[in-house]
Design a binder for these strands. Structure first.
Lengths: 338, 338
DNA sequence: CTGAAAGCGCTTACAG
DNA sequence: CTGAAAGCGCTTACAG
């Protein structure tokens, strides 16, 4: 900027005025500055600007996810970025891998970079240490999971209701022995889904069989191995609910291997590519991930824009998409399973 | 920091020394400062630090992708982040959507934030405007596509060779009428793949049939519609090469719908989840995406670490994974197709 | 309409 | 071992 001022033969303040498109600069000075800036390839230093400006904005927000390599997170990032970009804001993303210490360290790094706001999918740890930052003016929005120990705008998905409804769907096809394959650990969404399963069984007057309820790593291999094991039992389940798409894929593999794809009903949480091309097509409970990201980003930018209204919690409803695998009657399973 | 100094009863410089773990501070002052910092919840301002420090590092790198919502980019981001994180560096990602103006604007925004380095998958536009930034000390690494109009470390995938080999694989099963479904536009990887296809045919003495060579949007719908159309011809292809996984998925759908999955050979570029569970399992040419991201990130950090060695270009070899769909003999296709 | 001075939060380069 | 002064690139708050 100093060089631009020197080349244009004006003061720093005049350059600043031109860069920021402030009014009341004579046209010929504007042109001199613009020409000098172009000639020098001058790009204003946003960091220095934010240090001095009264609003202290860095035009940067933090997005803390469980693991940004999965499709769910990738879509979230993109929709958040789509909201941020028109405002000239960049998104810095990071993954906490469900590790609380890592989560806390990453939040501190975001704060050290003075992000204008923070969006996070909490690792379900106590976030009360965030209160201090919030009071210092950091807007925080939680997405997909609620904040514990701290108030914050939150966008959730009705995991509980959707799974209950999904299990009721399977019950409607006569299933009574429905296995639940889920993610272990105290991840909020897992717990909610599990509770939805239990609630549906309870409402139907069915005692939950603990041996049909398996919690594990939540990946493809877990789904595959667990399904194989369950199917080998003398009293196999007639239907399987997979609480995550990776698990669903593993179960699909196991059913195909055993030739049971059209015998055992399967319903999965979260849609995935090609689910409609499998044999039979896989029924799923689908979340509107872009809507989740968009809602959270809009809440955050409203807060950054000094919205001081009461805290909001938005809950999105997933949709059950019946494609075939979840619409298999129990009689078929019984005749083949025994 | 001022508050910390006041609370600890020391000078700014002493606080600075403690924060930066500089030697030669008396233990009791260290403790006083540490206690004051903790009490106040003090987090150093990295922006202010980088403004003043001699190395000018912001502990931030830019990652410019075509579209961060797809699985390929998501994995790239994660592996780049895995290299950056242990160095205390954050990754800012953005998507240019193959739009050159957007690409240029995003690069300027990265420069305005004074990223320590820039990694990009160029939209295949002329990047000579980057030379100025490079001379000013900005390390640039291109990944997946080469830099045009500017020298930069680059990590590429041998698209040409892998596709030529893939087509030879199909030729080995007796196919002579092999369709090519690719992405239009002047994206480098597309062109390379297309050239690999042509080279293989040429080497085998087969005249390329332009009507079998379709370039389009490169998505699922394009693959589906184009495959349906080709299969409806009086002289349909006996094998299809899909130059991108989204296209492959569309072709899978079309073949399944026509009951031609085990009749027409299919080979796709880029693996995708569940490809091995389809009927028949889909043969693909798979790229090692994590290796791509890791190599690029390591090149970048070497440059940031003042490596002034000659420019490097690393080329990774994809792997052909035969699963069944690409190993269908031409005779079957001929008997059914006519 | 224009610019000189001060200061954002930190580190550098010195002096003690 | 400790600190006062200057300055990174910019904007604020004034004065002219």
């Amino acid at each position: 900027m100093r060089e631009v001022a020197a080349l244009a033969g004006v003061s720093l303040k005049t350059v600043s005025r031109v860069i920021n498109a402030e009014p009341n600069v004579s046209p010929d000075l504007v042109e001199k500055v613009v020409r000098a800036a172009k000639q020098l390839g001058y790009v204003p230093h946003l960091g220095a600007r934010s240090l001095r400006r009264s609003d202290r904005r860095t035009a940067t927000v933090g997005l803390l996810l469980a693991d940004m390599s999965n499709a769910f997170s990738a879509v979230l990032m993109r929709t958040v970025d789509d909201v941020a970009r028109p405002r000239g804001v960049f998104v810095m993303a990071a993954s906490h891998d469900e590790d609380e210490d890592r989560e806390r360290a990453l939040i501190t790094e975001f704060v050290a970079r003075r992000v204008d706001g923070l969006m996070l999918t909490p690792a379900c740890s106590d976030l009360s240490y965030l209160v201090q930052q919030q009071r210092a003016g950091l807007p925080v929005v939680c997405l997909d999971r609620p904040a514990l120990g701290v108030g914050a705008d939150t966008v959730l998905v009705d995991n509980f209701g959707a799974v209950r409804q999904g299990i009721e769907h399977l019950l409607g096809y006569g299933h009574r022995r429905i296995a639940y394959l889920g993610h272990h650990g105290r991840i909020y969404t897992s717990t909610q889904r599990h509770n939805g399963y239990l609630a549906a069984l309870h409402a139907a007057g069915i005692a939950a069989d603990d041996s049909l309820c398996r919690l594990g790593a939540g990946d493809d291999a877990f789904g595959y191995c667990t399904a194989l094991e369950l199917l080998s039992r003398p009293d196999p389940p007639t239907a399987i609910f997979a609480a995550r798409n990776a698990i669903t894929m593993g179960v699909v593999r196991a059913l195909a291997e055993r030739g049971l794809s059209t015998t055992i009903a399967l319903l999965g949480f979260d849609d995935f590519p090609l689910s409609d091309l499998l044999t039979p097509p896989v029924s799923v409970i689908a979340q509107d991930v872009p809507a989740l990201g968009r809602a959270a980003a809009e809440l955050l930018f409203a807060r950054i824009g000094a919205d001081t209204g009461p805290e909001q919690t938005i809950t999105l409803q997933p949709t059950l998409i019946p494609r075939g695998s979840g619409e298999i009657n129990v009689s078929a399973a019984c005749s083949a399973g025994r």
